[in-house]
Write a protein that binds this DNA or RNA. Structure first.
Lengths: 334, 334
DNA sequence: GTGAAAGCGCTAACAT
DNA sequence: ATGTTAGCGCTTTCAC
C-alpha cells in the first residue's frame, strides 16, 4: 500500500505563498479573493492534488453532505426480485446526485442493524435519514427525529415525521371495480403483510370496494413474495373453487398466483381474472401479461429526497405528506 | 427542527467527575479503567445520551470504518431486472456487516459521478473502495490505488489491484461442450458487451470451445439486457436459419432469445437449444426453464469484502486475485 | 482583500 | 489507573 501523505491546506498555502484562510476561501468558492491569488492557489491545489479532508471539514461545519436511506429489511429481501427497493433507490439517488449529496444506503434487517443505524445517524455521519418502508410501529424514525435529525418516510410512519406515499386505496378500487364491471362475482384477494402500511391499505381498499358492490370478501395472506402468492392461491382455490377473480397486493404474488392457477388447470383470464399491484417489468412478460396497478415508486423516492433537501435547507414550509397517484394498467390477465 | 445540542465528551466527563481521556477510554472499551469509574462514566453516557462525534474521531484516527462499493453504471442499469448488482451488494453487505463496517453504495454512470467518487474517496470519507464491475480501461481503480487508497475489483481490472472473478471460460466451455455432446452443430452465441471482462471472456470461451470441436462460430452482439437478446436472436436467425443452438452470455439475453424463438415458431429445445449464463431466478421461471451457467456472484462480493478487510488490516499476505468456480445447471432448454 | 488565531470533539502520548 | 496536553485539518470570526 502506498499510503502516500495527503497534502493539507497548510501545504497548499505554503506553496501558493498565502495563508490557510485564503486557500480555504478559494477552495470553497468565496468571491472575495483577488483573481491573481485565486489562480495561484488553484495552481498549487492542482500540483499537489489537494482534496479537503472531509472529517476536518465536517467537524467545523457540522455538515456531511450525505443522506442515509434506510431499508428496514435484510439484504436478501432488498435485492430479491422484488423491485420496490431498487426503484426507490433510483429515485432518491437521482435527486440527491443533482443536489451533490452523497447517498448512503443502509440495510437493517436485524435488530443489531437497527442499532447500528441509530448510532450512525446520531454520530453525525449523515445530515438526514430517509426510510424506504416501515414495518409495524418501528420506533427508529421517531427516535431520530427526537434527536433533532431530519427524517422523511415512505408510507405513513408511526411518528410525526414528513412522509411520501402512493394512493393505495384509489388504485385498488380501480382494480376491483374493473373486475366487478367485467362480470366477476367471486373476487378473492391475496393480501400483503399486515404490519406494513402498503399491506394494510391495499386490503382495506379491497374490502371497501367489494362491500360497496355488495360482494363477499375472500382473503388469503401473503408477504409480497412470489412464493407466498403460490401458496395463497392454492389456499384460495381450496376454500372457494368457484372463485372467478383474484386481486394480489403485489405483482410478484400475482405471478405466483398465475403459476398455481395454471397448475390447477384454470385459464387466465377466461376462468379466473388476475390483477396485480406494482407494474414491475415482470407483469409485461408473464403469461398472460398482467393487468396491474401502477405505482410511481421511483417518483416517490425523488419526492422523499426533495423533502429532505428542503428540511436540511431550513425550509419552514415543508409539507407533512405527499400522496402520489396510482393507475390501473390493463393487460390480458383481466 | 429540534437541532438539539449533542452532548460532548467534555460534558460526560464533567458529569462523571473524571477527565475526558477516561471517558474516551471507557467509550472505546479500554480495559485499564477501574470498574467503579467505568460504571459512573457509562451512567453519565446513558443519562446524557452521548454518542461520539464521528467527524472528530475520524480526524484523529484517520479511519472512518466505512467502505465504498462503486457500481460504475447508472442507477437505472444497476437496479434494472439484471440481478448482478443486487447479488454482489448482498455479498459485500453481509461480510461488512459482520466486520461492523459501514457499506457506502455509489453509482457512477455519468462522468460527473466518476469525479464525485474520486473526490469522495480521496477526501477520506471511506477507508477503502470496492469496484463491482469495470468498463473498458476505467482509470479510477488505478487512480485511487496510486493515492494510497485500498482498492479491490470484481473482474480483472485495468490496473494492478487485487481482484475477484469467476471462471467464465470454464463455465462457457461446459455449456458449449454440453451442446456439442447433445448433437448440436450450428451453435451460435449472443455475446455480452465487449468493453467488460465478463463479455470478453465468455465470448473467448465460446470461440475456443467451438474451435476445439471443429465447429464454426456465429456471433451476434448484445449488452446483457433482455432487449439486446431479443434483437440479437432475430439477427442470428436471419444470418443462419439452420442454427440449432444458442449460448447467451447472460440469462436476461437468453430470456430475450427465448421470446424471439417462440415468435419465430421455433421450439425450444427440440428445434433450438438455449443456454444462458448467471442462473438468476428468472431462469427457473422461464418457459421452458433455462439451462444456464451458475456463477457465485454473492460469494464474489463476500470475497471482495474479505480481501478489503485484510488490506485495511495491514495484512501483507493478501492474494492478488481469487477466481471462483462456475457450474452448468441443466434445465429443459438444452 | 488577506492574515492571525481560535476552536470544532476527539484520541493518544506522556506524566503522574 | 487516571489526568494533562498536544494536535488531527479545517472554517470562521476578527483585525488589519
Amino acid at each position: 500500500m502506498t499510503t502516500r501523505e495527503r497534502p493539507t491546506l497548510e501545504a497548499v498555502a505554503r506553496r501558493a505563498g498565502v495563508s490557510r484562510a485564503t486557500v480555504s476561501r478559494v477552495v470553497n468558492g468565496s468571491t472575495t479573493v483577488a483573481a491573481g491569488i485565486r489562480d495561484a492557489v488553484n495552481r498549487a491545489v492542482d500540483e499537489l492534488g489537494y482534496v479537503p479532508n472531509q472529517a476536518a471539514r465536517s467537524l467545523v461545519t457540522q455538515r456531511t453532505d450525505s443522506i442515509a436511506l434506510i431499508l428496514p429489511e435484510t439484504a436478501n429481501r432488498v435485492f430479491s426480485d422484488d423491485l420496490f427497493f431498487p426503484a426507490i433507490i433510483r429515485g432518491v439517488g437521482m435527486e440527491l446526485e443533482a443536489a451533490d449529496k452523497q447517498l448512503v444506503l443502509m440495510m437493517t434487517g436485524s435488530t443489531a442493524g437497527h442499532h447500528r443505524v441509530e448510532r450512525y445517524a446520531v454520530a453525525g455521519h449523515v445530515d438526514g435519514v430517509l426510510f424506504a418502508s416501515i414495518h409495524g410501529a418501528d420506533p427508529l424514525p421517531g427516535l431520530l427525529a427526537d434527536r433533532g435529525i431530519p427524517v422523511v418516510c415512505s408510507g405513513r410512519p408511526p411518528a410525526a415525521v414528513p412522509y411520501v406515499d402512493v394512493d393505495h386505496a384509489g388504485g385498488v378500487a380501480a382494480a376491483v371495480r374493473h373486475l366487478v364491471a367485467s362480470g366477476r362475482r367471486r373476487i378473492a384477494t391475496i393480501a400483503g403483510p399486515q404490519d406494513m402500511v402498503a399491506g394494510l391499505e391495499r386490503l382495506a381498499g379491497y374490502r371497501d370496494t367489494l362491500a360497496e358492490a355488495g360482494l363477499p370478501a375472500l382473503v388469503a395472506n401473503g408477504d409480497f413474495t412470489r412464493e407466498s402468492g403460490i401458496s395463497a392461491m392454492r389456499e384460495l382455490l381450496e376454500r372457494d373453487p368457484s372463485l372467478d377473480a383474484v386481486f394480489a397486493a403485489s405483482d410478484l404474488m400475482a405471478h405466483g398466483a398465475l403459476q398455481t392457477l395454471r397448475a390447477a388447470g384454470r385459464r387466465v383470464p377466461s376462468d379466473v381474472a388476475v390483477i396485480g399491484f406494482d407494474d414491475f417489468e415482470i407483469s409485461r412478460y408473464s403469461d398472460p401479461p398482467l393487468t396491474t396497478v401502477r405505482q410511481p415508486i421511483a417518483e416517490a423516492g425523488r419526492v422523499m429526497a426533495q423533502l429532505m433537501l428542503r428540511l436540511i435547507g431550513g425550509d419552514e414550509e415543508v409539507p407533512e405528506s405527499v400522496v402520489l397517484p396510482t393507475e390501473l394498467v390493463l393487460r390480458e390477465s383481466a
